[in-house]
């Protein structure tokens, strides 16, 4: 790593101040994406601002029909939360399927969402549930938040503080993991609220997480696996690498979407 200054603010205001004072500051949450990047000397921030010590960014609560999760809440906490299990069991399962148990002890929902890694799990739930991303300065619909590979609508210095998930009637998640990296090469999050269905795909998109309108339409009309059995996915906009070609990903999206719908309320992890 290149040298940097570490800060551990107690309030959002302190975090904002540290950011504005740093030459090239960046926020640190669980650090399980950022620190490996720094160790490989692929980035050289002047200041790391650790947001995990800010109390208002912690915690899980149910309020006004929403499941509200503080951005600095760890994957393990989300996984183990009785509230999450009761309201959106697939989200709990998703959190419990990220990385390995040591990673889940450190990584956070806000860090993962704000980083928008194309193979991260959380963006598919945020988009697939139509969540609202709350920052220190505004609220953004998930459809507006994810912009591209590692890119979000966040402005410089903008801190994701909380994510509000509307509670769906049912949600489900199916993922297929790379044998090497263990990240998802395809993962599909499906939610149904009334007749509205959202289908979000992570791990596969050349521009990061994305929705599948055709699948959503078909499932809105008929929320059964058979409804999407005939659909295919265009490999054109998909990633292609050593562990998965675009064609393979396209086929896996079809399979994972169907399998997700086959087991509503559950999460399935394949490898």
């Amino acid at each position: 790593m290149y040298p940097f200054t570490y800060h551990r603010p107690k309030t959002i205001a302190e975090a904002q101040q540290a950011f504005s004072e740093g030459m090239d500051a960046t926020f640190l949450s669980g650090g399980h994406t950022l620190l490996p990047t720094l160790k490989q000397r692929l980035a050289a921030p002047s200041d790391l601002i650790d947001v995990t010590g800010i109390p208002e960014m912690q915690g899980i609560e149910e309020a006004g029909g929403f499941l509200k999760i503080g951005a600095a809440t760890t994957h393990d906490t989300v996984f183990a939360s009785p509230i999450v299990r009761r309201l959106i069991p697939a989200l709990s399962g998703l959190a419990g399927s990220i990385g390995d148990r040591h990673v889940r002890h450190r990584g956070t929902i806000g860090g993962s969402t704000a980083n928008n890694d194309p193979s991260a799990d959380y963006p598919s739930a945020v988009l697939g549930l139509g969540a609202t991303v709350i920052t220190d300065r505004r609220e953004m619909a998930s459809d507006d938040f994810f912009v591209g590979l590692y890119e979000t609508a966040r402005e410089p210095g903008e801190i994701v503080t909380r994510i509000d998930f509307p509670v769906p009637d049912i949600a489900c998640y199916a993922k297929f993991r790379s044998p090497a990296s263990r990240y998802s090469i395809v993962a599909v999050f499906v939610s149904k609220t009334g007749s509205a269905v959202r289908v979000a795909v992570t791990g596969a998109g050349a521009s990061g997480v994305f929705r599948l309108p055709e699948f959503e339409e078909a499932l809105s009309a008929d929320f059964r696996p058979e409804a999407i059995a005939h659909l295919t996915v265009d490999p054109d906009m998909l990633l292609s690498d050593m562990s998965a070609t675009a064609e393979y990903r396209a086929d896996l999206i079809r399979v994972m979407a169907r399998r997700a719908v086959e087991k509503p309320g559950q999460i399935q992890s394949f490898k």
Binding site: Y6, H32, L35
Partner: peptide, 23 residues
């Protein structure tokens, strides 16, 4: 260097963590 191997696992307040990825 990539938080994959687990040779560095310690407990922080009783919770396991990969100490190569903790400042």
């Amino acid at each position: 260097d990539t938080t994959q191997c687990g040779c560095c696992v310690v407990h922080i307040d009783g919770v396991s963590a990969k100490s190569c990825t903790v400042l």
